[in-house]
Design a protein around this nucleic acid. Structure first.
Lengths: 230, 230
DNA sequence: GAATCAAAAATTGTCGACACTTTTAAACAA
DNA sequence: TTGTTTAAAAGTGTCGACAATTTTTGATTC
Protein backbone atom coordinates (compact mmCIF):
# COMPACT_ATOMS: atom_id res chain seq x y z
CA UNK A 1 0.00 0.00 0.00
CA UNK A 2 3.01 2.26 0.39
CA UNK A 3 3.62 1.78 -3.33
CA UNK A 4 1.44 4.77 -4.02
CA UNK A 5 4.34 7.02 -3.18
CA UNK A 6 5.45 8.68 -6.42
CA UNK A 7 9.09 9.20 -7.22
CA UNK A 8 9.02 12.95 -6.72
CA UNK A 9 12.11 14.70 -8.03
CA UNK A 10 15.48 12.95 -7.76
CA UNK A 11 15.73 12.25 -11.50
CA UNK A 12 19.30 11.12 -10.95
CA UNK A 13 19.61 7.43 -10.23
CA UNK A 14 23.12 7.49 -8.78
CA UNK A 15 24.69 6.15 -5.61
CA UNK A 16 23.54 9.19 -3.66
CA UNK A 17 19.97 8.21 -4.46
CA UNK A 18 20.56 4.85 -2.84
CA UNK A 19 22.06 6.45 0.25
CA UNK A 20 19.19 8.93 0.56
CA UNK A 21 16.57 6.18 0.32
CA UNK A 22 18.36 4.02 2.85
CA UNK A 23 19.11 6.69 5.43
CA UNK A 24 15.69 8.26 5.05
CA UNK A 25 14.00 4.97 5.84
CA UNK A 26 16.18 4.43 8.90
CA UNK A 27 15.61 7.92 10.23
CA UNK A 28 11.86 7.84 9.71
CA UNK A 29 11.53 4.43 11.30
CA UNK A 30 13.54 5.57 14.30
CA UNK A 31 16.24 3.00 13.71
CA UNK A 32 18.63 5.95 13.54
CA UNK A 33 17.73 7.99 16.59
CA UNK A 34 17.74 11.80 16.76
CA UNK A 35 21.16 13.20 17.56
CA UNK A 36 23.09 10.27 16.17
CA UNK A 37 26.24 11.33 14.34
CA UNK A 38 26.36 10.96 10.56
CA UNK A 39 30.06 11.21 9.79
CA UNK A 40 30.90 10.91 6.12
CA UNK A 41 33.85 8.50 6.41
CA UNK A 42 31.83 6.19 8.63
CA UNK A 43 28.87 6.14 6.24
CA UNK A 44 31.21 5.77 3.28
CA UNK A 45 32.72 2.66 4.81
CA UNK A 46 29.31 1.30 5.73
CA UNK A 47 27.87 1.71 2.22
CA UNK A 48 31.08 0.80 0.47
CA UNK A 49 31.09 4.06 -1.53
CA UNK A 50 33.41 7.03 -1.51
CA UNK A 51 32.52 10.17 0.42
CA UNK A 52 31.17 12.03 -2.62
CA UNK A 53 27.78 10.30 -2.91
CA UNK A 54 27.44 10.33 0.88
CA UNK A 55 27.91 14.10 0.96
CA UNK A 56 25.32 14.59 -1.74
CA UNK A 57 22.86 12.41 0.15
CA UNK A 58 23.34 14.38 3.35
CA UNK A 59 22.65 17.65 1.55
CA UNK A 60 19.45 16.17 0.19
CA UNK A 61 18.40 14.91 3.61
CA UNK A 62 19.15 18.25 5.20
CA UNK A 63 16.83 20.02 2.78
CA UNK A 64 14.18 17.46 3.69
CA UNK A 65 14.59 18.39 7.33
CA UNK A 66 15.61 14.91 8.49
CA UNK A 67 19.22 15.79 9.20
CA UNK A 68 20.87 18.90 10.58
CA UNK A 69 24.24 20.49 9.91
CA UNK A 70 25.91 21.81 13.03
CA UNK A 71 27.95 24.99 13.06
CA UNK A 72 31.11 22.89 13.05
CA UNK A 73 30.10 21.20 9.83
CA UNK A 74 29.26 17.91 11.54
CA UNK A 75 26.01 16.23 10.55
CA UNK A 76 23.57 14.41 12.80
CA UNK A 77 20.04 13.08 12.75
CA UNK A 78 17.76 15.99 13.45
CA UNK A 79 16.51 16.44 16.99
CA UNK A 80 12.87 17.48 17.15
CA UNK A 81 11.41 19.18 20.19
CA UNK A 82 7.86 20.18 21.03
CA UNK A 83 8.00 23.49 19.18
CA UNK A 84 9.02 21.56 16.05
CA UNK A 85 6.04 19.34 16.58
CA UNK A 86 3.70 22.32 16.75
CA UNK A 87 5.22 23.74 13.58
CA UNK A 88 4.68 20.45 11.81
CA UNK A 89 1.06 20.46 12.89
CA UNK A 90 0.37 23.86 11.37
CA UNK A 91 2.28 23.03 8.21
CA UNK A 92 0.15 19.92 7.86
CA UNK A 93 -3.03 21.91 8.39
CA UNK A 94 -2.01 24.39 5.70
CA UNK A 95 -0.99 21.84 3.09
CA UNK A 96 -3.59 19.18 3.76
CA UNK A 97 -6.44 21.65 3.82
CA UNK A 98 -5.44 22.66 0.34
CA UNK A 99 -4.99 19.02 -0.65
CA UNK A 100 -8.46 18.15 0.61
CA UNK A 101 -10.00 21.21 -1.04
CA UNK A 102 -8.58 20.20 -4.41
CA UNK A 103 -9.26 16.50 -3.93
CA UNK A 104 -12.91 17.18 -3.10
CA UNK A 105 -13.28 19.07 -6.37
CA UNK A 106 -12.38 15.94 -8.32
CA UNK A 107 -13.60 13.20 -5.98
CA UNK A 108 -15.03 10.03 -7.51
CA UNK A 109 -16.81 6.96 -6.19
CA UNK A 110 -13.57 5.06 -6.84
CA UNK A 111 -11.83 7.32 -4.36
CA UNK A 112 -14.51 6.63 -1.79
CA UNK A 113 -14.04 2.92 -2.37
CA UNK A 114 -10.28 3.21 -1.84
CA UNK A 115 -10.76 5.02 1.45
CA UNK A 116 -13.29 2.45 2.61
CA UNK A 117 -10.82 -0.36 2.05
CA UNK A 118 -8.29 1.56 4.07
CA UNK A 119 -10.79 2.14 6.88
CA UNK A 120 -11.63 -1.57 7.07
CA UNK A 121 -7.93 -2.24 7.49
CA UNK A 122 -7.80 0.39 10.24
CA UNK A 123 -10.59 -1.37 12.11
CA UNK A 124 -8.63 -4.63 11.92
CA UNK A 125 -5.23 -3.13 12.69
CA UNK A 126 -3.51 -5.01 15.48
CA UNK A 127 -0.68 -2.67 16.40
CA UNK A 128 -0.37 1.05 16.91
CA UNK A 129 2.35 1.20 14.27
CA UNK A 130 0.06 -0.45 11.75
CA UNK A 131 -2.72 2.00 12.54
CA UNK A 132 -0.32 4.92 12.11
CA UNK A 133 0.81 3.52 8.78
CA UNK A 134 -2.76 3.25 7.50
CA UNK A 135 -3.54 6.72 8.79
CA UNK A 136 -0.64 8.22 6.87
CA UNK A 137 -1.53 6.23 3.76
CA UNK A 138 -5.03 7.66 3.86
CA UNK A 139 -3.76 11.20 4.16
CA UNK A 140 -1.28 10.61 1.37
CA UNK A 141 -4.04 9.34 -0.87
CA UNK A 142 -5.94 12.57 -0.40
CA UNK A 143 -2.80 14.58 -1.16
CA UNK A 144 -2.21 12.60 -4.32
CA UNK A 145 -5.78 13.17 -5.42
CA UNK A 146 -5.23 16.87 -4.78
CA UNK A 147 -3.16 16.71 -7.95
CA UNK A 148 -0.67 19.49 -7.24
CA UNK A 149 2.94 18.33 -7.43
CA UNK A 150 4.30 21.23 -5.43
CA UNK A 151 1.84 20.96 -2.56
CA UNK A 152 2.45 17.22 -2.59
CA UNK A 153 6.22 17.57 -2.49
CA UNK A 154 6.14 20.09 0.33
CA UNK A 155 3.80 17.83 2.21
CA UNK A 156 6.02 14.77 1.71
CA UNK A 157 8.80 16.63 3.43
CA UNK A 158 6.59 17.53 6.39
CA UNK A 159 5.13 14.02 6.49
CA UNK A 160 8.58 12.52 6.91
CA UNK A 161 9.31 14.83 9.81
CA UNK A 162 5.96 13.87 11.28
CA UNK A 163 6.92 10.21 10.97
CA UNK A 164 10.07 11.01 12.94
CA UNK A 165 7.80 12.33 15.69
CA UNK A 166 5.74 9.15 15.58
CA UNK A 167 8.88 7.04 15.91
CA UNK A 168 9.79 8.96 19.02
CA UNK A 169 6.33 8.47 20.48
CA UNK A 170 6.44 4.79 19.70
CA UNK A 171 9.70 4.62 21.62
CA UNK A 172 8.06 6.04 24.76
CA UNK A 173 4.77 4.28 24.32
CA UNK A 174 3.34 5.45 27.60
CA UNK A 175 2.42 8.66 25.81
CA UNK A 176 -0.34 6.87 23.96
CA UNK A 177 -2.27 5.23 26.73
CA UNK A 178 -5.67 6.09 25.26
CA UNK A 179 -7.43 3.95 22.71
CA UNK A 180 -6.91 5.76 19.40
CA UNK A 181 -8.60 3.36 17.03
CA UNK A 182 -12.25 4.31 17.42
CA UNK A 183 -11.42 7.99 17.50
CA UNK A 184 -9.22 7.76 14.41
CA UNK A 185 -11.68 5.73 12.39
CA UNK A 186 -14.70 7.85 13.16
CA UNK A 187 -12.76 11.03 12.40
CA UNK A 188 -11.76 9.57 9.07
CA UNK A 189 -15.37 8.65 8.31
CA UNK A 190 -16.35 12.28 8.82
CA UNK A 191 -13.47 13.30 6.59
CA UNK A 192 -14.58 10.91 3.88
CA UNK A 193 -18.10 12.29 4.03
CA UNK A 194 -16.77 15.82 3.57
CA UNK A 195 -14.55 14.81 0.66
CA UNK A 196 -17.44 13.09 -1.08
CA UNK A 197 -19.91 15.87 -0.30
CA UNK A 198 -18.84 17.91 -3.30
CA UNK A 199 -17.98 20.94 -1.17
CA UNK A 200 -14.24 21.75 -1.37
CA UNK A 201 -14.59 24.29 1.43
CA UNK A 202 -16.17 21.76 3.75
CA UNK A 203 -13.47 19.23 2.91
CA UNK A 204 -10.74 21.73 3.70
CA UNK A 205 -12.29 22.69 7.02
CA UNK A 206 -12.93 19.11 8.05
CA UNK A 207 -9.35 18.18 7.24
CA UNK A 208 -7.99 21.09 9.25
CA UNK A 209 -10.13 20.22 12.25
CA UNK A 210 -9.20 16.54 11.99
CA UNK A 211 -5.46 17.23 11.98
CA UNK A 212 -5.73 19.59 14.93
CA UNK A 213 -7.74 17.03 16.87
CA UNK A 214 -5.54 14.09 15.98
CA UNK A 215 -2.39 15.95 16.99
CA UNK A 216 -3.76 17.12 20.30
CA UNK A 217 -1.18 15.04 22.15
CA UNK A 218 1.43 17.70 21.37
CA UNK A 219 1.75 18.86 24.99
CA UNK A 220 2.90 15.42 26.06
CA UNK A 221 5.35 15.16 23.20
CA UNK A 222 8.41 15.88 25.28
CA UNK A 223 7.39 13.86 28.33
CA UNK A 224 9.73 10.95 27.81
CA UNK A 225 12.63 12.95 26.48
CA UNK A 226 14.83 12.79 29.56
CA UNK A 227 15.51 9.10 29.28
CA UNK A 228 15.91 9.27 25.52
CA UNK A 229 18.79 11.69 25.44
CA UNK A 230 21.19 10.19 22.90
CA UNK B 1 14.24 46.21 2.86
CA UNK B 2 15.20 42.79 1.56
CA UNK B 3 17.42 42.44 4.62
CA UNK B 4 14.49 40.96 6.49
CA UNK B 5 15.19 37.64 4.83
CA UNK B 6 16.43 35.30 7.54
CA UNK B 7 19.25 32.87 6.90
CA UNK B 8 17.05 29.79 6.91
CA UNK B 9 19.03 26.55 7.09
CA UNK B 10 22.33 26.34 5.24
CA UNK B 11 24.40 26.39 8.41
CA UNK B 12 27.48 25.56 6.36
CA UNK B 13 29.34 28.61 5.14
CA UNK B 14 31.36 26.90 2.44
CA UNK B 15 31.99 27.59 -1.23
CA UNK B 16 28.77 25.83 -2.20
CA UNK B 17 26.90 28.41 -0.14
CA UNK B 18 28.42 31.16 -2.24
CA UNK B 19 27.50 29.39 -5.46
CA UNK B 20 23.92 28.80 -4.30
CA UNK B 21 23.45 32.46 -3.35
CA UNK B 22 24.90 33.68 -6.60
CA UNK B 23 23.06 31.34 -8.95
CA UNK B 24 19.81 31.72 -7.06
CA UNK B 25 19.91 35.47 -7.47
CA UNK B 26 20.62 35.18 -11.17
CA UNK B 27 17.85 32.67 -11.77
CA UNK B 28 15.26 34.60 -9.78
CA UNK B 29 16.13 37.86 -11.48
CA UNK B 30 15.85 36.24 -14.88
CA UNK B 31 19.47 36.93 -15.74
CA UNK B 32 19.81 33.19 -16.21
CA UNK B 33 16.85 32.29 -18.38
CA UNK B 34 14.83 29.07 -18.08
CA UNK B 35 16.36 26.20 -20.03
CA UNK B 36 19.90 27.54 -19.88
CA UNK B 37 22.48 24.81 -19.36
CA UNK B 38 24.28 24.60 -16.01
CA UNK B 39 27.26 22.39 -16.76
CA UNK B 40 29.52 21.76 -13.80
CA UNK B 41 32.89 22.32 -15.53
CA UNK B 42 31.65 25.60 -17.00
CA UNK B 43 30.41 26.87 -13.66
CA UNK B 44 33.56 25.61 -11.95
CA UNK B 45 35.69 27.66 -14.32
CA UNK B 46 33.45 30.68 -13.92
CA UNK B 47 33.55 30.66 -10.11
CA UNK B 48 37.16 29.56 -9.92
CA UNK B 49 36.28 26.56 -7.74
CA UNK B 50 36.48 22.84 -8.36
CA UNK B 51 33.43 20.86 -9.39
CA UNK B 52 32.66 19.62 -5.88
CA UNK B 53 31.11 22.79 -4.45
CA UNK B 54 29.32 23.40 -7.76
CA UNK B 55 27.70 19.98 -7.59
CA UNK B 56 26.56 20.57 -4.03
CA UNK B 57 25.07 23.91 -5.00
CA UNK B 58 23.13 22.38 -7.88
CA UNK B 59 21.63 19.74 -5.59
CA UNK B 60 20.53 22.47 -3.24
CA UNK B 61 19.01 24.50 -6.07
CA UNK B 62 17.20 21.47 -7.42
CA UNK B 63 15.51 20.88 -4.09
CA UNK B 64 14.47 24.52 -4.14
CA UNK B 65 12.84 23.96 -7.51
CA UNK B 66 14.93 26.52 -9.37
CA UNK B 67 16.92 24.01 -11.36
CA UNK B 68 16.02 20.69 -12.92
CA UNK B 69 18.02 17.52 -13.50
CA UNK B 70 17.35 15.92 -16.85
CA UNK B 71 17.25 12.17 -17.35
CA UNK B 72 20.73 12.35 -18.85
CA UNK B 73 22.12 13.91 -15.69
CA UNK B 74 22.52 17.32 -17.28
CA UNK B 75 21.30 20.29 -15.28
CA UNK B 76 19.48 23.37 -16.54
CA UNK B 77 17.52 26.31 -15.22
CA UNK B 78 13.99 25.08 -14.60
CA UNK B 79 11.41 25.79 -17.26
CA UNK B 80 8.05 26.80 -15.81
CA UNK B 81 4.84 26.47 -17.78
CA UNK B 82 1.30 27.55 -16.99
CA UNK B 83 0.44 24.46 -14.97
CA UNK B 84 3.46 25.20 -12.77
CA UNK B 85 2.15 28.69 -12.30
CA UNK B 86 -1.23 27.38 -11.17
CA UNK B 87 0.47 25.00 -8.75
CA UNK B 88 2.48 27.86 -7.31
CA UNK B 89 -0.69 29.86 -6.83
CA UNK B 90 -2.37 27.16 -4.76
CA UNK B 91 0.78 26.49 -2.77
CA UNK B 92 0.93 30.18 -1.95
CA UNK B 93 -2.72 30.20 -0.91
CA UNK B 94 -2.14 27.25 1.40
CA UNK B 95 1.00 28.58 3.06
CA UNK B 96 0.15 32.27 3.19
CA UNK B 97 -3.32 31.64 4.59
CA UNK B 98 -1.68 29.86 7.46
CA UNK B 99 0.94 32.57 7.74
CA UNK B 100 -1.73 35.28 7.89
CA UNK B 101 -3.80 33.29 10.38
CA UNK B 102 -0.87 33.00 12.73
CA UNK B 103 0.35 36.56 12.14
CA UNK B 104 -3.09 37.95 12.95
CA UNK B 105 -3.04 36.16 16.29
CA UNK B 106 0.06 38.11 17.33
CA UNK B 107 -0.39 41.34 15.38
CA UNK B 108 0.78 44.60 16.96
CA UNK B 109 0.49 48.27 16.12
CA UNK B 110 4.17 48.12 15.19
CA UNK B 111 3.33 45.61 12.50
CA UNK B 112 0.63 47.88 11.15
CA UNK B 113 3.15 50.70 11.05
CA UNK B 114 5.62 48.58 9.09
CA UNK B 115 2.99 47.69 6.51
CA UNK B 116 1.94 51.32 6.17
CA UNK B 117 5.50 52.36 5.36
CA UNK B 118 5.60 49.64 2.72
CA UNK B 119 2.27 50.80 1.25
CA UNK B 120 3.48 54.39 1.00
CA UNK B 121 6.45 53.10 -0.97
CA UNK B 122 4.09 51.14 -3.18
CA UNK B 123 2.15 54.29 -3.98
CA UNK B 124 5.38 56.02 -4.98
CA UNK B 125 6.87 53.09 -6.89
CA UNK B 126 8.01 54.12 -10.32
CA UNK B 127 8.56 50.78 -12.01
CA UNK B 128 6.65 47.53 -12.16
CA UNK B 129 9.70 45.67 -10.85
CA UNK B 130 9.84 47.95 -7.84
CA UNK B 131 6.15 47.42 -7.14
CA UNK B 132 6.62 43.64 -7.36
CA UNK B 133 9.54 43.85 -4.98
CA UNK B 134 7.51 45.77 -2.41
CA UNK B 135 4.59 43.39 -2.87
CA UNK B 136 6.78 40.38 -2.11
CA UNK B 137 8.40 42.17 0.83
CA UNK B 138 4.98 42.77 2.31
CA UNK B 139 3.98 39.14 1.95
CA UNK B 140 7.28 38.04 3.41
CA UNK B 141 6.76 40.28 6.40
CA UNK B 142 3.46 38.57 7.12
CA UNK B 143 5.08 35.16 6.79
CA UNK B 144 7.85 36.16 9.18
CA UNK B 145 5.29 37.39 11.69
CA UNK B 146 3.54 34.05 11.32
CA UNK B 147 6.47 32.74 13.33
CA UNK B 148 6.62 29.18 12.02
CA UNK B 149 10.01 28.28 10.58
CA UNK B 150 8.72 25.34 8.58
CA UNK B 151 5.85 27.19 6.95
CA UNK B 152 8.25 30.04 6.28
CA UNK B 153 10.89 27.81 4.70
CA UNK B 154 8.40 26.04 2.48
CA UNK B 155 7.04 29.40 1.44
CA UNK B 156 10.50 30.78 0.65
CA UNK B 157 10.93 27.97 -1.81
CA UNK B 158 7.61 28.71 -3.50
CA UNK B 159 8.29 32.43 -3.42
CA UNK B 160 11.49 31.98 -5.37
CA UNK B 161 9.70 30.00 -8.02
CA UNK B 162 7.07 32.73 -8.11
CA UNK B 163 9.80 35.29 -8.66
CA UNK B 164 10.97 33.23 -11.62
CA UNK B 165 7.47 33.61 -13.04
CA UNK B 166 7.59 37.36 -12.48
CA UNK B 167 10.93 37.56 -14.28
CA UNK B 168 9.38 35.85 -17.26
CA UNK B 169 6.42 38.22 -17.24
CA UNK B 170 8.74 41.19 -17.01
CA UNK B 171 10.52 39.90 -20.09
CA UNK B 172 7.28 39.91 -22.11
CA UNK B 173 5.91 43.08 -20.59
CA UNK B 174 2.89 43.20 -22.86
CA UNK B 175 1.28 40.72 -20.50
CA UNK B 176 0.86 43.45 -17.90
CA UNK B 177 -0.84 46.19 -19.83
CA UNK B 178 -3.25 47.04 -17.02
CA UNK B 179 -2.45 49.44 -14.22
CA UNK B 180 -1.71 47.22 -11.21
CA UNK B 181 -0.79 49.84 -8.68
CA UNK B 182 -4.19 50.99 -7.46
CA UNK B 183 -5.50 47.45 -7.41
CA UNK B 184 -2.48 46.14 -5.53
CA UNK B 185 -2.47 48.88 -2.95
CA UNK B 186 -6.18 48.73 -2.18
CA UNK B 187 -6.05 44.94 -1.90
CA UNK B 188 -3.19 45.26 0.55
CA UNK B 189 -5.14 47.80 2.58
CA UNK B 190 -7.97 45.30 2.94
CA UNK B 191 -5.42 42.68 3.93
CA UNK B 192 -3.93 44.95 6.55
CA UNK B 193 -7.37 45.62 7.98
CA UNK B 194 -7.99 41.89 8.27
CA UNK B 195 -4.62 41.25 9.91
CA UNK B 196 -5.21 44.02 12.43
CA UNK B 197 -8.84 43.02 13.06
CA UNK B 198 -7.88 40.37 15.59
CA UNK B 199 -9.63 37.62 13.68
CA UNK B 200 -7.16 34.99 12.44
CA UNK B 201 -9.86 33.35 10.35
CA UNK B 202 -10.69 36.57 8.59
CA UNK B 203 -7.02 37.24 7.95
CA UNK B 204 -6.56 33.79 6.43
CA UNK B 205 -9.56 34.18 4.17
CA UNK B 206 -8.61 37.66 3.07
CA UNK B 207 -5.09 36.51 2.25
CA UNK B 208 -6.39 33.57 0.21
CA UNK B 209 -8.77 35.77 -1.75
CA UNK B 210 -6.06 38.38 -2.31
CA UNK B 211 -3.60 35.87 -3.74
CA UNK B 212 -6.19 34.35 -6.03
CA UNK B 213 -7.16 37.79 -7.28
CA UNK B 214 -3.64 39.04 -7.71
CA UNK B 215 -2.61 35.96 -9.68
CA UNK B 216 -5.58 36.07 -11.98
CA UNK B 217 -3.31 36.72 -14.95
CA UNK B 218 -2.42 33.02 -14.98
CA UNK B 219 -4.23 32.32 -18.27
CA UNK B 220 -2.01 34.77 -20.11
CA UNK B 221 1.12 33.37 -18.53
CA UNK B 222 2.24 31.41 -21.54
CA UNK B 223 1.31 34.02 -24.15
CA UNK B 224 4.80 35.15 -24.97
CA UNK B 225 6.46 31.78 -24.66
CA UNK B 226 6.99 31.11 -28.36
CA UNK B 227 9.52 33.83 -28.79
CA UNK B 228 11.24 33.02 -25.51
CA UNK B 229 12.18 29.46 -26.36
CA UNK B 230 15.80 29.20 -25.26
C1' DG C 1 38.77 12.25 42.07
C1' DA C 2 38.54 16.46 39.06
C1' DA C 3 40.72 19.69 36.09
C1' DT C 4 44.30 20.76 32.58
C1' DC C 5 47.04 20.23 28.82
C1' DA C 6 49.25 17.73 24.75
C1' DA C 7 49.21 14.28 21.41
C1' DA C 8 46.57 11.35 18.45
C1' DA C 9 42.61 10.27 15.81
C1' DA C 10 38.80 11.52 13.21
C1' DT C 11 36.20 14.73 10.20
C1' DT C 12 35.35 18.31 6.92
C1' DG C 13 36.21 21.15 2.68
C1' DT C 14 38.28 21.13 -1.47
C1' DC C 15 40.84 19.49 -5.28
C1' DG C 16 42.36 16.85 -9.48
C1' DA C 17 41.93 12.44 -11.97
C1' DC C 18 39.80 8.95 -14.75
C1' DA C 19 36.33 5.95 -16.94
C1' DC C 20 32.19 6.19 -19.21
C1' DT C 21 28.40 8.49 -21.62
C1' DT C 22 26.35 12.13 -24.19
C1' DT C 23 26.58 15.94 -27.22
C1' DT C 24 28.66 18.53 -30.81
C1' DA C 25 31.24 19.14 -34.98
C1' DA C 26 33.14 17.66 -39.14
C1' DA C 27 33.66 14.98 -42.98
C1' DC C 28 31.39 12.60 -46.41
C1' DA C 29 27.65 10.75 -49.45
C1' DA C 30 23.26 11.16 -51.81
C1' DT D 1 21.20 21.21 -49.84
C1' DT D 2 20.14 17.40 -46.87
C1' DG D 3 21.10 13.33 -44.42
C1' DT D 4 24.48 10.06 -42.34
C1' DT D 5 28.48 8.40 -40.25
C1' DT D 6 32.52 9.29 -37.50
C1' DA D 7 35.71 11.65 -34.69
C1' DA D 8 36.36 15.12 -31.23
C1' DA D 9 34.81 17.69 -27.43
C1' DA D 10 32.31 18.22 -23.33
C1' DG D 11 29.88 16.42 -19.28
C1' DT D 12 28.70 13.31 -15.42
C1' DG D 13 29.65 9.91 -11.64
C1' DT D 14 32.88 8.34 -8.70
C1' DC D 15 37.20 7.95 -6.45
C1' DG D 16 41.37 8.93 -3.54
C1' DA D 17 44.30 12.60 -1.60
C1' DC D 18 45.64 16.35 1.37
C1' DA D 19 45.49 20.47 4.32
C1' DA D 20 42.98 22.48 8.04
C1' DT D 21 40.05 21.97 11.81
C1' DT D 22 37.66 19.62 15.49
C1' DT D 23 37.07 15.94 18.66
C1' DT D 24 38.77 12.36 21.42
C1' DT D 25 42.15 10.19 24.18
C1' DG D 26 45.60 9.90 27.55
C1' DA D 27 48.98 11.67 30.59
C1' DT D 28 49.87 14.90 34.26
C1' DT D 29 48.96 17.85 38.00
C1' DC D 30 46.45 19.66 41.85
Amino acid sequence: MTSLIPSVSLARRNLAFEVVSSLRAEIISGKLEPGVSLAEPVLAKRFGFSRAPIREALIELESEGLVEFQATGRTRVRILVESDFLEIRDARVALESMGARRAAARWTSGDTAWIEVNLKAQVNASTLAELSRLDIDLHEYVMLRGDNKRVLTLWQSIRRQFEMCLAKLHRNQQSLAFEPRQITVSAHRRLLAALASGSPEKAAQTMAAHIEDSMEWAPMYNQGLDGAMA
